[in-house]
Amino acid sequence: MDASQIIFGLTALLIIFSALRVVTTRNMVHAALWLIVTLLGVTVLYALLQANFLAVVQVVVYVGAIAILFIFAIMLTRREMRDGGPQLNKGWPLAALISLAVFGGLLALLYNAPVSERLAASLEGQDTLGALGQALVSPDAYVLPFEVASVLLLAALIGAVYVALNKKQESDK
C-alpha cells in the first residue's frame, strides 16, 4: 500500500457513500449537497490521474454551476417535496435489480478485459495541459467536436431560457 492507494481508497469510500445518499435521502436539498460531495470526490480522482484541467473544470463547472442550478431548481419546486410521501416509486426493487445486473455485467466485462491490471506510465517532462489546448483547436485533432459542443451549449441555453420563460406574465404587460 502506498500513499496514492490509500488516498484512492478513502476517496472511493467517500464517493460511494455520498452517491448512495444522493439517490436515497428524502430531503432534496440534502441530495444536492451530497451530490456536491460526490463531485468533489471525483475531483480528487482527476488530481490522482494528473488530469489537472479536468480537476479545475470539475470544480468550476460542476460544483460551481451545475450544483447551484440544481439547488435553485429544488428551491423553486420546494413545496411539492414536503408532502412526506415515499421518495421511491413502486418499481424500486426492479430498479435495484437492474442496477445490480448492470454492475455485475460491467464487472464480468472488466474481469475478462486484457488491460485492467495495467499501471500508468510516467508523465515526467510532458506538458499535457499544452497538448490538450493544442488538441482542442488543431484542425487535425478535435476542433470540430469543440465547435459543435459550443454551438450545442448556446442552443441549449437559449432553449432553456425560452422554455422556462413565464409566458402568462409576459402577455399581461
Binding site: 439517490v23 421511491l88 435495484a96
Partner: peptide
C-alpha cells in the same frame, strides 16, 4: 429508475 422526483 427509482426516484419519483424529476429533479432527483
Amino acid at each position: 429508475l427509482a426516484r419519483r422526483n424529476a429533479v432527483a
